[in-house]
């Protein structure tokens, strides 16, 4: 079993974590075309190489970001979501 390092709880067995999908910017829902929105909702990029993903440490429900190499399954880096999202998102 792999070990993943949670930014808050430290290294733990991967079974303590839940995968949350690729980190992707939500397109502006009012401006996006139907096609763009469908891409956003349904299509995973499935990149070969280093990807940025949402992961959650289940016992604490703590969401964070992991950079993982899908080719080698190496976890390159994990860090708090605040590194990417640090201001309030508004919808108008």
């Amino acid at each position: 079993m792999k070990i993943m390092k949670c930014p808050m709880n430290g290294p733990r067995n991967i079974s303590e974590f839940v995968w949350g999908g690729e980190v992707r910017e939500m397109p502006d829902p009012t401006a996006a075309s139907d096609h763009e929105w469908a891409e956003y909702v349904f299509i995973e990029n499935n990149t070969k190489g280093v990807v940025r993903e949402w992961w959650m440490h289940a016992p604490t429900s703590y969401w964070f970001i992991a950079e993982r190499n899908t080719e080698t399954d190496e976890i390159v880096r994990t860090y708090p979501a605040t590194e990417l999202y640090n201001s309030r998102r508004e919808f108008k």
Binding site: V18, G20, M26, W54, M56, S61, W63, A81, Y85, N86, S87, R88, R89
Partner: peptide, 15 residues
């Protein structure tokens, strides 16, 4: 539901 709320608010940063 709880996970979804936590996940979205990690992105939205609501108070």
């Amino acid at each position: 539901v709880y996970r979804a709320m936590m996940r979205w608010n990690a992105e939205w940063r609501l108070n």
